[in-house]
């Protein structure tokens, strides 16, 4: 594990250094990404100009959900976002060369092109979290305060696992990137809003089938002191890390199976 982190930092550092040869383009891309995130978030303000509540939630509450989801997505994307390129590596046969090195291909693809511009999404969402916390009128207990980092970590873990699962899917369907993206990016999008706006059936699906409710919705209900519309036991509010762990095991299995059945390309 320590070794994996060492290798990760080493590879990421090397890519950073090579990106640093073009500082202007790096700053530009970072700024563009940040502005795009802010504009996206501004859509919430437009919605709230017409209605005082969204799915039963106030503006600071929706901002809280948006920010926690956004931070989890951003951290997962910074650290592992490039795994979606697996399909390209398979098609071009470059996965072969990754497999020749004494380091797992997941680490190598995850660090590929590592670039500070990936931070573009993290900064705006972190700012939003701070703003929403200042406007939320919450009575902070120790349990509430502890749930916040737990939910961010759980969210990151769930997105990591989903990203790897979606990538592993490309072992089976080489041009499966679009389908895979609909789950990863779709998941990132859905969790930005109170899940109650999608209706009870969708909420059930997002709890039991594709457990995106554990990214931020369930723990946020606890932090915000809201009842669960599905009436699930209180244990569910803290289940995010557990769900992340289960998904991670599934993702690891899928990845291994994919690698074992990898057929390479001709030549």
């Amino acid at each position: 594990m320590v070794e994996a982190v060492r290798i990760y930092l080493l590879l990421a550092g090397t890519w950073m250094r090579s990106a640093a040869q073009y500082p202007a383009s790096m700053v530009m891309l970072l700024a563009t990404q940040a502005v795009a995130t802010f504009l996206d978030a501004a859509a919430i303000l437009i919605v709230f100009a017409h209605t005082p509540r969204l799915g039963g939630f106030s503006l600071p509450e929706v901002m809280f959900l948006y920010a926690t989801s956004g931070i989890s997505v951003a951290v997962a994307d910074i650290t592992l976002g490039t795994v979606e390129r697996l399909g390209e590596h398979i098609r071009h046969g470059t996965l072969d060369t990754l497999l020749l090195r004494p380091v797992g291909p997941l680490l190598q693809i995850a660090t590929e092109d590592f670039n500070p511009r990936r931070m573009g999404k993290l900064v705006p969402t972190a700012v939003m979290l701070v703003v929403s916390l200042r406007h939320l009128d919450l009575h902070w207990t120790l349990a509430r305060a502890a749930t916040l980092p737990l939910m961010l970590a759980g969210g990151v873990g769930i997105f990591w696992a989903l990203w790897v699962l979606a990538a592993a899917w490309q072992f089976a369907v080489v041009d499966g990137k679009q389908a895979a993206n609909s789950i990863t990016y779709g998941g990132a999008y859905v969790t930005q809003y109170p899940l109650s706006i999608f209706g009870r059936d969708a909420l059930r699906g997002l709890t039991w089938v594709l457990p995106l409710a554990f990214v931020n919705w369930e723990p946020a209900l606890y932090v915000l002191g809201r009842p669960d519309p599905l009436g699930l036991p209180v244990f569910f509010r803290f289940a995010s890390p557990l769900v992340a762990a289960v998904l991670a095991v599934l993702a690891a299995l899928a990845w291994r199976t994919g690698l074992r059945h990898y057929q390479s390309t001709g030549s």
């Binding site: 072969d96 497999l99 074992r260 990898y262 390479s264 030549s267």
Partner: peptide, 13 residues
């Protein structure tokens, strides 16, 4: 030939 080499190096099972 290449297929054999890929099996020797662990790329292919």
């Amino acid at each position: 030939k290449s297929t054999t080499i890929k099996m020797l190096t662990g790329i292919l099972t």
